[in-house]
Amino acid sequence: MTTTTSTTTAATMGLSFPAATFQKLSPSSYLQRHLQCTPATRPSGRSPSTFRPATLHTNALSHAHGSAVVRTGDTAVVCGVRGEILALTSGEGRTRGRIVVERVGVEDGEDVEVKTHALVVPNLELGTGCSRDYHPGPPTDFAQTTAERLRTLLLDTVPLVPATTLRIADAVGDVKAYWVLYIDVVVISLDGNVLDTAWAAIVAALKSVRLPAAIWDQDAEAVICDPTPENFRSLELMEVGYTASFVVCENDGEEGGENAEKEWVLSDPDEFEEQVCCEKITVAVGAGGKIVRIEKSGGLSDVAKTLPTCISRARERYQQWHKIIS
């Protein structure tokens, strides 16, 4: 793994072996020594608050109704959204005979529909040779966890897809079928922070979806679609939100004395930083700068100090994503 280190840093540290060896032997010190310089720099050359610039291409796939390719630095993912039709069998009501508890304070009952029928199905595939640790086979714990986090984001935190846009009704207005959106995220290249990139790809792909016009045919008792491309429609999505992930690196060294930083919050960690630092924070920001989700795991840093930093940076990142995707 090649990283660039400035020659001045090397001179002040007085290394007697190459930087790459130092990185392998003692990754934690390697990272901290970089951050202890003024100004604090990361091994990749970024400052702790810099996110990697992102690039986006949409509608690159010919067999998907919507698709997006997002690259942030060396992490690249392809997200394809395909719609398939779920016909409700006769007698199947909206709740399918299950007891549904409606929570007080829930504004609409529409997200219940999306969940009970499983109308939105996100999945994440890491076994594509995207990084040396992930090879084909059953998904690893990390892959399953990340997929579940994406699903929670999509169904609960930032419920982008309302059931109304997925309903297929007959002439009278009864719901006869639904569109089911299979959202498959395939990671092509992995260099840390797959969650942010995957989520942004999902949002961009959903925005680019063009579904055929679907009509319920009473005689055939099935859904027929109109093939003319001009009659394809986009999804009516709710307010978007974007995530920003961080890691917190503790300062173990004695240099700098009392005024030294206790820890550094690193935005958009790459693979090396994710492996070295155990404390991870993810903030999801919605429209208007609303904070819709905060996740923190590992580490013992003072949350009162690190979280506000993360929140303000996450809001900036929201603006960056918004500019690219919308």
Binding site: T89, P122, N123, P138, A147, Y182, D226
Partner: peptide, 20 residues
């Protein structure tokens, strides 16, 4: 089991009026 699956009822790809 290890992936998020779709609805338990089968879903079908869209059937079009005429195949163009």
């Amino acid at each position: 089991r290890r992936r998020i699956n779709g609805p338990t009822g089968a879903t079908v790809p869209p059937v079009f009026l005429e195949q163009t």
